[in-house]
């Protein structure tokens, strides 16, 4: 394959994300910036999850644990030890990576629904643990000392900055997603997804490959957690480890199409867009959760490969572009 062709699949994802980043900048609108932040966050998290779910075929129902855990660790250093947001994010990313490595060694032996259940258990155990862990403020959590924002030119400037950092993290997530997908390592993951035993017979060292996939899928969420809690100014256990957000991420990946680079991006975009519409619509706002549920059900039942997967199957020519 020509090397430029290999990277053709990166074009659309980059364009979509660039569009989301530019929209509030061009309109110079704070509420647009907030919406864009939410969408970028969803894209970064869903693309990360996709490395494990879409490429490797392991259904993590508790992926948000890396967001919560990394976020807690990073915010702790920022708040209690005066670290910069950059160092805090690095710490959060590393902490989540290490957690994924250790967990991966243990639970990636489980297959199918057993793995999914274990990830739920870990998320709940971690939430309960944070509730009891005094260093992280127990049930009250941590409230960021407002003076921390001063170093960044005050709260308003700091908020603006978090948007650009979020944009950077999203691009990073997207690049990781793409380079994993188009690498030899990624081919090994896809083989594991399709048939783990056969992949091992062909020489794929599945235990290692899965663990590294898990680690890669955990780092960006850890950093996003730090950034988000920094922006929010506080964190507490239910905010850090919401099981339903884990599942929303699965929905986004599924909606767009698992195992593709573009799928989770479009899925995140569409899901957040739909939610945004539903919660503001007079007619739907009270039952927005139910409407989302119906949409999810229809997707699962009728287009389980997601939008991108569906297109790829229908129109094979598109495979290169819709990588």
């Amino acid at each position: 394959m020509k090397s430029w062709q290999k990277h053709l699949g990166l074009v659309l994802p980059l364009l979509v994300v660039a569009g989301v980043v530019l929209w509030p900048i061009i309109t110079d609108n704070v509420s647009a910036r907030e919406s864009a932040f939410t969408i970028l966050k969803a894209i970064a998290l869903a693309s990360s999850l996709n490395i494990l779910l879409g490429y490797t075929g392991y259904v993590s129902f508790g992926h948000i644990v890396f967001y919560g855990f990394g976020g807690y660790v990073g915010l702790y250093f920022v708040n209690d030890h005066g670290w910069s947001i950059w160092a805090g994010m690095l710490a959060g990313g590393i902490a989540s990576g290490i957690l994924a490595f250790l967990l991966g060694k243990a639970i990636l032996r489980l297959r199918g629904a057993y793995f999914a259940l274990a990830t739920i258990g870990i998320n709940e155990a971690m939430k309960a643990f944070a509730n009891n862990f005094d260093l992280f403020g127990g049930p009250i959590g941590m409230v960021l000392n407002f003076s921390v924002y001063k170093a960044y030119g005050g709260a308003a400037e700091a908020l603006k900055m978090t948007f650009y950092i979020m944009a950077g993290l999203t691009f990073a997530a997207l690049l990781i997603s793409h380079f994993v997908r188009s690498s030899k390592f990624g081919l090994g993951l896809l083989a594991i997804r399709e048939n783990e035993d056969a992949a091992e017979v062909m020489g794929v060292i599945a235990p290692n490959a899965k663990t590294w996939a898990y680690v890669l899928s955990a780092i960006i969420p850890g950093m996003v957690g730090v950034l988000f809690f920094f922006k929010n100014g506080h964190v507490e256990p239910p905010v850090a480890f919401p099981l339903h957000s884990s599942i929303e991420l699965l929905v986004m990946v599924m909606l767009g199409g698992q195992g593709t680079v573009l799928g989770p991006i479009l899925g995140a975009f569409a899901y957040q867009g739909m939610r945004g519409y539903l919660v503001t619509s007079d007619f739907f706002k009270d039952i927005q959760l139910s409407v989302s549920g119906v949409v999810l059900l229809l997707i699962v039942l009728f287009i389980p490969a997601g939008a991108i997967g569906w297109l790829r199957h229908r129109i094979p020519v598109l495979r290169r572009v819709l990588a």
């Binding site: 629904a113 927005q288 959760l289 999810l296 389980p304």
Partner: peptide
């Protein structure tokens, strides 16, 4: 498994909503 997990979860969302 992902399909049946998400299918039952969508029922969860519908009922709770």
């Amino acid at each position: 498994h992902l399909s049946s997990l998400l299918a039952t979860f969508s029922v969860n969302m519908i009922i709770i909503g």
